[in-house]
Design a protein around this nucleic acid. Structure first.
Lengths: 218, 218
DNA sequence: CGCTATATTGATTGGTGTCAACGGGAGTGG
DNA sequence: CCACTCCCGTTGACACCAATCAATATAGCG
């Protein structure tokens, strides 16, 4: 661990900036310290799909790969803790614990990706929005212990409507419409465009279409 | 490695049988020896989405997790090489190499899942079909060296139309229609319903909408 | 105060889902 | 050998959800 410390250096990125472009050579790996970043893929004609959301403690880059496979973009101001790749890889071989931790994290990301595949392939626009909100809530809950005995929840959306659309495989107009519809139906309340109140979490989860029991499985 | 051998036992599953149900307790992990299996998720109302395709050498189960997160179904007759989970986990801690290999495989699966997210979220039905065919060809090519100098390719579909639909986030009717359309347009030829000839691979890749150069990146 | 980015809303189109009928091959049994 | 049935696949008619094109708010900011 002290060895890792010796390798690291910090880097800051402003909101909206792209950290790496798909296809770029990457000579470092990194871990998010603060802020939120997104992984996305873009087709020739401009259609884009987000394929991952990176939160503090998440890992950027893949050991053993030269070029980046996705665009990595900062959605908020970001602080990265970087390691030059070669030394990191060597350290990983000598220190099994690091690899084990990476395996854990990668398996979690794989689960998240697969949950997202169900959303993209089979859920309606309304269910997609509800699911996204539920996921953001779950994440918030696990970070800051903000649950007040199952009462009302509120939070800020860290994403624009366009980013939500790219995440959900929708257009931004559809996102806007469905958010309005959920508001009209009393599932959510909009304090401002980005600040949302959930009067009844169970109701939201029902709209999300998940087969979960409704508990917050942190 | 010899230790691993001491733990293993084999299990066979008939085509169509479910190996584990989502939520089941799993007291083993396994590796596919022969055959093809699928990972899928199902919603309460029956909508299902495949989230993974397991080929020989692929891994089943997650170290450190009690219950299965997905349904695992054999699409062909299958032979599994199983290890009881607890001893396997202990061995993994003592033998870093196994963990490193698992990490590699998991990262590959994550890449595949993310490629699939782009397909599910942003591609048209026609592009989805073309992409699936391209992926099957790439897999076949990497297994058996069947490429004849960029000439015509042919192969068998290992999936029913319904399985294709579950994989692509479509209905089986739409799959059937788009396969017919690709045939009508000369992109593919149907020797039988499951045996396909590709007269022009570049054309197929173009239909798939990928930004790749068209080479077969094995 | 305009300027720009973000968001909402409307009108219309089009792709895919849904419901339904039909085709065709493989296996089964008379 | 031929009907029968089942499963898989195809095709058609129609409906509907979400995309597209377009106009209009709203908020932040120099």
């Amino acid at each position: 661990m002290e060895e890792l410390d010796a390798l690291k250096f910090y880097r800051t990125v402003e909101a909206g900036q792209t950290i790496v472009w798909s296809g770029d050579e990457m000579d470092f790996v990194a871990s998010i310290v603060t802020g939120i970043a997104t992984l996305s893929q873009t087709m020739e004609d401009g259609r884009t799909q987000m394929v991952g959301l990176l939160l503090p403690s998440d890992f950027v880059g893949r050991p053993g790969r030269r070029a980046a496979a996705y665009d990595v973009t900062a959605t908020t101001d970001i602080v990265l803790c970087c390691f030059r790749k070669r030394p990191f890889e060597e350290l990983m071989i000598r220190t099994p614990h690091i690899g084990q931790r990476l395996l854990e994290m990668t398996l979690d990301e794989l689960d998240a990706a697969r949950e997202w595949m169900l959303l993209l392939g089979r859920k309606t626009a309304r269910e997609k929005i509800a699911t996204l909100l539920a996921i953001i809530i779950r994440r918030d809950a696990s970070l800051q212990q903000k649950l007040r005995g199952g009462g009302t929840l509120e939070f800020d959306l860290p994403l624009t409507r366009e980013a939500m659309a790219d995440y959900l495989g929708l257009t931004l107009e559809t996102v806007s419409r469905q958010v309005s519809a959920l508001k009209r139906d009393g599932v959510i309340e909009l304090v401002s465009k980005r600040h949302i109140v959930i009067p009844d979490l169970a109701r939201l989860l029902e709209e999300a279409g998940d087969d979960s029991d409704g508990g917050l499985p942190i």
